[in-house]
Every structure is written in structure tokens, then in C-alpha cells.
Design a binder for these strands. Structure first.
Length: 978
RNA sequence: GCGGGGGUUGCCGAGUCUGGUCAAAGGCGCAGGCUUCAGGAGCCUGUCCCGUAGGGGUUCGUGGGUUCAAAUCCCACCCCCCGCACCA
């Protein structure tokens, strides 16, 4: 009896550690062997087709984690798969050091940030003596890079390390300079201004991750309507709804807030004190002339610039002087707050008297309806406050009411007759045009402000600042967008559903500020004090991999890497002799580099997690289309989900951060890879559960033992039905795995290669009860299918199988269609079906069987069966017609009544048979069922612990006390159990 | 709000494009048996409900619809995840 025991590597004290040690040993062994044999070092080979895969270099302000490993494993699987298919595969690696976080992290260490240091020690596992040196960001980056390199190697990735670099190496910086000079020349980099959230203390933009409070807040642009107070003084009221200017009745000023009269770019404005401060940061010259309380303004009048009417200024305490200009105009018909404030004043006339005003002025103020919107009448603001029962301007429900009205009127509102040239238009359609028009007419301006407070990590409240002299990548350029879309259409994207996302991102992308003031990185070549921002210096660096090998090998100095040199290498531009003598790089080296670039480019596949779709991956496409001809545009992008830890998002601070190093050391490379890959494919998020990894470890150990057992058995030289079956099934598996891998469906591919094939082999062994040469051959194929996923164990088993060379570079199994044997498979299906039916009956009998009798269908039933199936397949189920045809056969004519019954039964049950199988059965024709059941008799007897007898339904001598034999159908023998 | 992806049997997760083969792959978990000195190991069997004969019943976010037939197609609704910019 063939059985597989799991005792080969047991360890008395602790079994799982015993496994681990063994697996680790073979992992180390093979990693060393690969390195020594340099099998992953790829050089141009004109005889072989190339394949260039890349992973977005990871940022080195911390250790790599299992999330990186997830994406990297997918790439590695693909790289290994392609390599086995005979491609010359290049999989390089590098490290991202550019940007602020590395500096920031280093600063926090220098400042002695306890929480931060605790995380470095506990999560990242940084030893005390190293930690001290982290005050130098470069040291920190070096430390993490070294740690990560070790971890990556331990994961067994098939990388060509000769091309490694980090992004602050002077040679790389020369490359980036070349890139940006080029982009600028082509007009893709432009100068501009941009509002950012700014910390006045740190003197730098405050990104989301730099914030103590206000994560996700972005600057909002208010339109300022410049109401005239007198001939030369303006009262700029801030609004998001400038279209409501036609419905203004008054202005609100907070009587208790401080306002100023100031010269703003030479114009006299009255705004809140805060607003004046803010405008200073928004490219305005601000000269404050006088400060005063808002109450001074109450009762004065102003002129509406579109209607030229004069209206009063009234007191409104809901006006927040911190928001925008602190001046608000009132549209009581459409703004709940305005209506409520007005009502408050009406109800308490004494308030106005306090300001020395006659309450009668309120009588003149009538709401002006200007927007028609479904579901509301003339005055939506009034209606909704009544409906919602909003008490006054201090009621929190006022906020909600405002939101509802705003949304309703924006999406469905139509401007009424009194809106002059905008009458009859939809609010949403006209808004932008209207703002532009008003600005042109000089009656509107704008300013930025924050909808909610943002506090920097240094605890300083942030403001909106407009940066001057910023450099932008002109992603808004429609022509550029078109080119990128063209690239997307030409390339393959895995999964396909991500394509739409890319296309919308391209449309949505605006100009991107590509330079920063602080952080590590490359100087903007034409502007001192600016550094190319991280997402902008990582777009075409894959080209740098192709030549960094030479830069290192020939010790090429950064100053030798001139613009002309890069132009020659990447574009073939210029006269090589001249470039060589000018740069000092020998001619043959220049040629070599040029050729190496031409050999490897374009990138054949780049894979990352989906979070990079709206930024890095799309930038990668933008820059390639800008700088390279279409033949060098990327060929494919793979996108995968994010990695969750025990069902939750991974966070250092949440204590569920799993470093790559830790995972590999605890569970081993193969188990780590498989667990990650089995977790998800497509854009689904994968979930890392320690329970799963442990199971996987066991599974792989079992796999090893299972295979080892097969290798050790001598193996009979037989080639019968079961061998044909195994080989046939294997062809299908090869096909499935190959096809899924091609589509980056790594999960399905692994699932099939590992579990489905395993089950097939188990079935074979169970049926066969001994090992054979065929089984050993199958094992070889199986190991090859598994190698991309489980390279170390496969390599070990391969060597034990005395396989030639490394399995990592062995030939990928090819499907041999001729070995797919439908009849054999169908026969085995009959056995499987028979077992299922038998087991079902036994289950219902509720007692163990003693004897089982099978009756195979009579000859004439087969004729009826095949004929009927044919007709069903062809789509004409006319029973009468079938009977007529069959009646020509004398044998059937005798049993025409039974035949008719059979036909209707077949018709009924045929829906349970797949089209594919119907086709197969028709192709095969009559199967000798008796023979195959007899063949499987021993196996079946053992399975059911019962004696078995097989008869044909027509057998005169059959034992059939319950007359079950008549039930026999082709492919479904009748059963009787005692 | 906008955009992208999803909701399947105890769990993870196929199946949905191309309707019938779907009570629905595979894995995990759980239960029973075997093996073992022992085992969080391995092997076998079972795992929606009912059934002393291979059968029947109820399921695939919710509610409708199309069809001889729907997890799969159409419509409406509910829920979850991700991204939204100067930041890697």
C-alpha cells in the first residue's frame, strides 16, 4: 500500500522548528548555488528573446515588509516562468532614497522622538548602536538598504544584482538631470504657481503624513464678489456660489470680529484681519491701514455690482472671521443661514436698535428667488428650514440644511429669468464660466482657504500658501494625455479591469509640482535650491538599469555622463567619436551601452500595488511617451491589491507590521511566497494570516516528503489506462497553469499547480497502488510547474531526481495535445461517477455494504443514447422523430416502448451533462463499461469494503433480485447493494 | 462628492464576460476513522436541509424583471474596500 508518512525530518523537541531548519538549509543552499552559477545575471543575447520585468524600487526609510514581498513575488514568478519558457529575462532591483521622509525620520531620531525610536527598535528591529547613527539620513538609508537586500535575497528573487543602485548616487543624478533637461526642452516642464498647505514654522508644505490634525484636507478656492462700499472701497464677500449674486439682499458682518481696511495690490478692501494675513501668502501685496470691529460697518450700504442696487449691511454672528474674508453676502431665498439670520433679526428688533438701526429696514428685504429646482417652490431655503424645524442661525441643523440645498441646487438647479445672461442655464454647467466672466469684468476675485483647520506635526496651525516659481510637469497637456492613452491601448494591463482606471486617471491628472525645497534627491538642473520630487525622479529609471552594469564595471565617473552621452545611449544621437573623446568614455563602451539599452528596452512588465495606479504607474507612462519613441513604450503593467495583516491594514503604529526579514526567517521563502500568492490575484487585497503561513509550511514539507517517496520508489515500467489518464490530465494542467501565468493570474496558477495536480497524482496513486516510471515523469513535470512559486524545494527535489542543471532554468513543460486522451478520461469519469452514486446509496442505507452489483447498459441502449445525444446536441429534441429513425433498427424495434422511455429520460438528464462532455461522449462512442469496472474492481472493493460483481444488463445469468439492472444507462451503470 | 474594485455556501476564495455541466472548484476550519510511543504532522471519509437506493428541497447582498432555465443577463436599492495630489 502506498502511504506517505511525514516523519522524514522530525525533530524530537519541536517538530515545526525542525521543518524550518531543514527548509531554511535548502533555501540557503540553492540561493548560494544560483548566485555562484550567475544564472540570474542577464546579458544581451541576440539568439534569445528578451524579457524585462521591473518592480518599483522601494523607499528606504524603513525595512521592506510582506506587502513588498507580495508584489515582488508576483514579479519573480513571472520572471522565472518566462525564463523557463526560454526567454532571456532581466529582473533588476534598486532603492529609492529621494525625498523628505528619510530626512524627516532622521530628524526625529536626532530630536529623540521616543515613540518613533521605540518603533524603530521594536518593529524595524534596529539595534541600539546602529540607531545612534541614524541622525545621518544617508546612514539610515544605507542601513535599511543593506537589511533589505539581505531580505530580498532570502526571498529567493531571481535578480541580477549587478545593476543595483540608489537614487542619490551621482551617476543616477546625472541621468535624472538628463531626463529633466530633455523634458524641459520638449516643453513638458513649465513654470507656475500653486496653492499648498503650508506650515509657517517649518517653512514647507505640510503633506498629509506631516499633519497632526486635518488629514485629507485640501485648499478650497472661494470666489470673492467685490461689492462696492463707496467709489474706491470694496467689500469682498466670499462664496462657493457666485451665481447667487442675483439674489443678494444684504451683507452679513460679524459685529464682534476684527476687520481691517487694507490696500490689497493697491485696492482698498475691507476684510477680516485674518483674511488680510492669509492674503499675504497668496501672492498679494497687503498693506493694512486701520483695524476696527465689525460693528462699525453695520447699517452702512453697498452696491451690488450686477444689479447696481444699494443694500444694507446687517449683523450676523454666524459669520466666521476665520473663514475666507469674513464677509458674507446674503441670499435668503436659497441659503438657510441667511434666511435664519434675517428671521432672527425680525424676531428680535431690539438687536437692530442696539446698532442704531430702524428695524423697518428689514421690511424692505425680501428674498429673491433665482434658482428653479425640482421638489422646491420659490424659496428653497425657507422651505427646508421649516421642514427640518431649524430654530435659528445657531442650530446645528442649519449646517445640514445648507448642504442639502447646495447639492440640490448645484446638480439640478436652473437659473431663472432674473439671472441675466445666465438665465435658463443649469447651475453646474454655468458655474465655471460665470466665475471667469466675473473675474474678467473686475467684479470678482478669489482666494484659497482651508475648510477645516490643519495642524502641522510641529503643532503650528497651517495656512494656504501660493508658491511662486514652482516647476510643473504639464500632465494637463491634452496632447500628452492622448499619447499616454495611445500607449495604454497598445499595452497589456493585468487585470484588464484596471485599464479603465488608468484611462480615467490620465484624464483627471492635472499639472504636477515636480520640485521641492527639501529632502534628498537631484537638483533641478536649471534652478538652484529645488530638488526633483520623489514621484518625478522615478519614471524612466528602468532605462538606467540597462547601463548601470557598465557604469559600475568600467568605473564610469558621473562627470563623464554628459547629456551627449545619454543622448547617444538612449537615442543613438550624435557622432560617437566626438562623444567618446569629449566624455572620456571609450567608444566600444558607449556602443555596448547603447546596444544593451536597445536590447532590453522596452520594459516588458512592471508590477505594483494598486495604490500606485493614480500616480507612479501613470507617471511612468507619461514620461515614457514624452521621452521615448513608441517602440520603447512599456509593454505591460500588472496591478495587484494591497496586503492586509490578519484582516487589517498594516501599520507600524498598530503593531501589525510584518517585515520581510521576519517572515522569511520565521516561515522560509517558499512558504512566504506561496502564502502571499495564494492570498489574492487581480486587484483584490491579499490577507496575510500567520495561521495560513504555518499551514503552508507544513504543506510544503509534506510536498517534499511526498515527492521524495516517489523518487525513492523504484517505479514499475507500466503504461496502461491509468498512465494514459495521468498523462492526459497533466496536459490539461500544464495548459491551465501556463495560460493563467501568462495573464498574471498567479493565484489560480499556483492553486492549479499545487493542489489540483497534487490531487490528480493522489488519485492515480490510490488507483494504481504502486509507483511507476510514468509517475516519476509526472513528478518532473509537476516540479517544473511549481518552480516559479516554490523554487527552493523544487530545486532540491530536482537534484534528488538527478535532473539536469538547475530546474530554475529548465524548460517549461509544453502541452502535447496528442497526449490528451478523451476516452481514457471519460472512462475514469465513469468510475468517479460510479463511486459517487455508490457512496450516496450506502449513505442512505445507513449500514455497511456486503456486496455490490453493477449492471452495465445493454447494447441497444447505447444506440439510443448516442442517437438522442446527437439530436440534443444539434438542438432538435423531437422524440417522435428520433423514435422513427431508431425503429429502422430491428433490435430496437422490438423494444420500441422501452426505447421511447429511455429517450425521454436521456433528454431529461442530458441537461446535467456539460456540452463539452456530450461532445466527448459522441466522439468516443460506445465505451466498454464492463471492462473498465472489472479493471477497477479491486480498487472499488477496497474502497467500499465489499465484494463486487459486474454484469451486463443483458447477461442471462446475472444476479438481480431487485430487478435493478433495467435502470442501467450508458455511462451510468445500475447498482444493487446488499 | 468624484473615480475604481467588490458583496458566493463556517471562513478564505473560484464561478459572473460566453445563462443550463452549479449544492456550486480548491484551500482552511470542523467531525469521524486510520497511522503513529506521541503529535498543532500525515492518510482516508464526511461537512446546506431532508431521504433505508443513486432522489428531493432551500441557497449565491436586497427587491423586482427577462427566460423553458439565472450566482451568471436587465432595472432599482443597500453595504464594504481603495484612490483623490506636492506625498511615498
Amino acid at each position: 500500500m502506498f502511504s506517505i508518512d511525514g516523519k522524514t525530518f522530525k525533530n524530537k523537541e519541536n517538530k515545526s522548528e525542525g521543518n524550518m531548519e531543514f527548509l531554511k538549509k535548502i533555501e540557503e543552499k540553492w540561493q548560494k548555488a544560483w548566485e555562484k552559477a550567475k544564472i540570474f545575471e542577464a546579458d544581451p543575447n541576440p539568439k534569445k528573446q528578451k524579457f524585462f520585468v521591473t518592480f518599483p524600487y522601494p523607499y528606504m526609510n524603513g525595512p521592506l515588509h510582506v506587502g513588498h514581498a507580495f508584489t515582488a513575488s508576483r514579479i519573480d514568478v513571472y520572471a522565472r516562468f518566462k525564463r523557463m519558457q526560454g526567454y532571456n529575462v532581466l529582473f533588476p532591483w534598486a532603492w529609492h532614497w529621494t525625498g523628505q521622509p528619510l530626512m524627516g525620520a532622521s530628524e526625529r531620531v536626532a530630536k529623540g522622538d521616543e515613540e518613533f525610536i521605540r518603533i524603530l527598535k521594536e518593529v524595524d528591529g534596529v539595534p541600539e548602536n546602529e540607531l545612534k547613527k541614524f541622525v545621518d539620513p544617508i546612514y539610515m538609508a544605507t542601513y535599511y538598504t543593506n537589511e533589505s537586500r539581505t531580505a530580498v535575497k532570502k526571498l529567493g528573487l531571481s535578480i541580477d544584482w549587478r545593476r543595483e543602485f540608489n537614487t542619490i548616487m551621482p551617476t543616477y543624478q546625472k541621468f535624472i538631470k538628463w531626463q529633466y533637461e530633455n523634458l524641459k526642452e520638449k516643453g513638458y516642464v513649465i513654470r507656475g504657481t500653486h496653492p499648498v498647505i503650508w506650515c509657517p514654522h517649518c517653512k514647507s508644505p505640510t503633506g498629509d503624513h506631516d499633519r497632526q490634525e486635518g488629514v485629507g484636507v485640501t485648499p478650497e478656492e472661494y470666489t470673492l464678489i467685490k461689492f462696492k462700499l463707496d467709489e474706491e472701497t470694496y467689500l469682498p464677500a466670499a462664496t462657493f456660489r457666485p451665481e447667487t449674486i442675483y439674489g443678494v439682499t444684504n451683507i452679513w458682518i460679524n459685529p464682534d470680529a476684527t476687520y481691517v481696511k487694507a490696500l490689497i495690490n493697491g485696492e482698498k478692501w475691507i476684510i477680516s484681519e485674518k483674511a488680510a494675513e492669509k492674503l499675504k501668502e497668496q501672492l498679494r501685496k497687503v498693506d493694512i491701514k486701520r483695524k476696527f470691529k465689525g460693528r462699525e460697518l453695520i447699517g452702512k450700504t453697498f452696491e451690488n455690482p450686477v444689479t447696481k442696487e444699494r443694500m444694507p449691511i446687517l449683523p450676523g454672528w454666524f459669520v466666521d472671521p476665520e473663514q475666507a474674508t469674513g464677509v458674507v453676502y446674503s441670499v435668503p431665498a436659497h441659503a438657510p443661514y441667511d434666511w435664519l439670520a434675517l428671521k432672527d433679526l425680525q424676531e428680535k428688533p431690539e438687536i437692530l436698535q442696539e446698532f442704531g438701526l430702524n428695524p423697518k429696514i428689514l421690511e424692505k428685504i425680501k428674498p429673491i428667488s433665482i434658482i428653479k429646482v425640482e421638489g422646491f417652490g420659490e424659496y428653497p431655503a425657507i422651505e427646508i428650514t421649516r421642514k427640518m424645524g431649524v430654530r435659528d442661525q445657531h442650530d446645528p441643523k442649519a449646517e445640514e440644511a445648507t448642504k442639502i440645498i447646495y447639492k440640490k441646487e448645484f446638480h439640478g438647479g436652473i437659473l431663472k429669468e432674473n439671472c441675466m445672461e445666465y438665465a435658463g442655464k443649469k447651475v453646474r454647467d454655468v458655474k465655471e464660466q460665470l466665475i471667469e466672466d466675473f473675474k474678467k469684468r473686475g467684479i470678482a476675485d478669489s482666494m484659497y482657504d482651508l475648510p477645516q483647520p490643519v495642524i502641522c506635526r510641529c503643532l503650528t496651525p497651517c495656512i494656504v500658501k501660493i508658491l511662486e516659481d514652482q516647476w510643473f510637469l504639464k500632465y494637463s497637456d491634452p496632447k500628452w494625455k492622448e499619447k499616454v492613452k495611445e500607449a495604454i491601448k497598445k499595452m497589456r494591463i493585468y487585470p484588464e479591469t484596471a485599464t479603465q482606471w488608468f484611462l480615467t486617471v490620465v484624464d483627471w491628472l492635472k499639472d504636477w509640482a515636480c520640485a521641492r525645497r527639501t529632502g534628498l534627491g537631484t537638483q533641478v538642473p536649471w534652478s538652484k535650491g529645488w530638488i526633483i520630487e520623489t514621484l518625478s525622479d522615478s519614471t524612466i529609471y528602468m532605462a538606467f538599469y540597462t547601463i548601470n552594469k557598465h557604469i559600475k564595471k568600467y568605473k564610469i565617473k558621473p562627470e563623464m555622463l554628459t547629456k551627449e552621452v545619454f543622448n547617444y545611449i538612449f537615442y543613438g544621437k550624435g557622432k560617437i567619436n566626438e562623444i567618446s573623446s569629449k566624455s572620456g568614455i571609450e567608444k566600444h563602451i558607449l556602443e555596448e551601452m547603447h546596444n544593451e539599452f536597445l536590447y532590453w528596452y522596452p520594459v516588458d512588465l512592471r508590477v505594483s500595488a494598486k495604490e500606485l495606479v493614480p500616480n507612479h504607474l501613470t507617471f511612468f507612462l507619461f514620461h515614457h511617451t514624452a521621452l521615448f519613441p513608441p517602440k520603447h513604450w512599456p509593454k505591460a503593467i500588472g496591478v495587484n491589491g494591497m496586503l492586509m495583516i490578519e484582516g487589517k491594514q498594516m501599520h507600524k503604529s498598530k503593531g501589525n507590521f510584518v517585515t520581510l526579514k521576519n517572515a522569511v526567517e520565521t516561515y522560509g521563502a517558499d512558504a512566504t511566497r506561496c502564502t502571499l500568492l495564494l492570498g489574492a490575484e487581480g486587484m483584490d487585497d491579499s490577507d496575510w494570516r500567520s495561521g495560513n503561513v504555518r499551514d503552508m509550511q507544513n504543506k510544503l514539507q509534506t510536498l517534499y516528503n511526498f515527492a521524495k517517496k516517489i523518487i525513492e520508489e523504484k517505479g514499475e515500467n507500466e503504461r496502461g489506462h491509468l498512465e494514459k489518464w495521468l498523462i492526459s490530465i497533466l496536459q490539461r494542467r500544464i495548459k491551465e497553469v501556463t495560460e493563467n501565468l501568462e495573464k498574471m493570474k498567479t493565484r489560480t496558477a499556483l492553486e492549479t499547480a499545487l493542489f489540483e495536480v497534487w490531487n490528480d497524482i493522489r488519485w492515480y496513486i490510490r488507483r494504481k497502488e504502486k509507483t511507476t516510471k510514468t509517475l516519476k515523469e509526472t513528478l518532473k513535470m509537476w516540479l517544473k510547474l511549481l518552480t516559479p512559486f516554490i523554487p527552493h524545494i523544487c530545486e532540491e527535489l530536482w537534484s534528488e531526481l538527478k535532473g539536469e542543471g538547475f530546474i530554475s532554468i529548465a524548460e517549461w513543460p509544453k502541452i502535447n495535445e496528442k497526449l490528451i486522451d478523451l476516452e481514457t478520461e471519460e472512462k475514469e469519469n465513469i468510475i468517479k461517477g460510479l463511486i459517487e452514486d455508490t457512496a450516496n446509496i450506502i449513505k442512505v442505507m445507513k449500514k455497511p455494504p456486503k456486496k455490490i452489483f453493477y449492471y452495465t447498459a445493454a447494447e441497444w441502449k447505447w444506440k439510443v443514447y448516442l442517437k438522442t445525444l446527437r439530436r440534443i446536441k444539434d438542438g432538435e429534441i423531437n422524440i417522435k422523430k428520433i423514435i422513427e429513425e431508431l425503429a429502422r433498427d430491428n433490435e430496437i424495434k422490438e423494444k420500441i416502448k422501452d426505447a421511447a422511455k429511455l429517450i425521454s429520460k436521456i433528454t431529461r438528464e442530458s441537461s446535467k451533462i456539460s456540452e463539452k462532455r456530450k461532445e466527448n461522449i459522441l466522439k468516443i462512442g460506445k465505451i466498454n463499461e464492463k471492462e473498465i469496472i472489472e479493471d477497477a474492481k479491486k480498487f472499488l472493493e477496497k474502497k467500499f469494503h465489499a465484494e463486487i460483481e459486474v454484469y451486463s444488463e443483458e447477461d442471462e445469468k446475472r444476479y438481480d433480485p431487485k430487478l435493478k439492472a433495467v435502470q442501467a444507462m450508458p455511462c451510468k451503470p445500475a447498482i444493487y447493494i446488499e
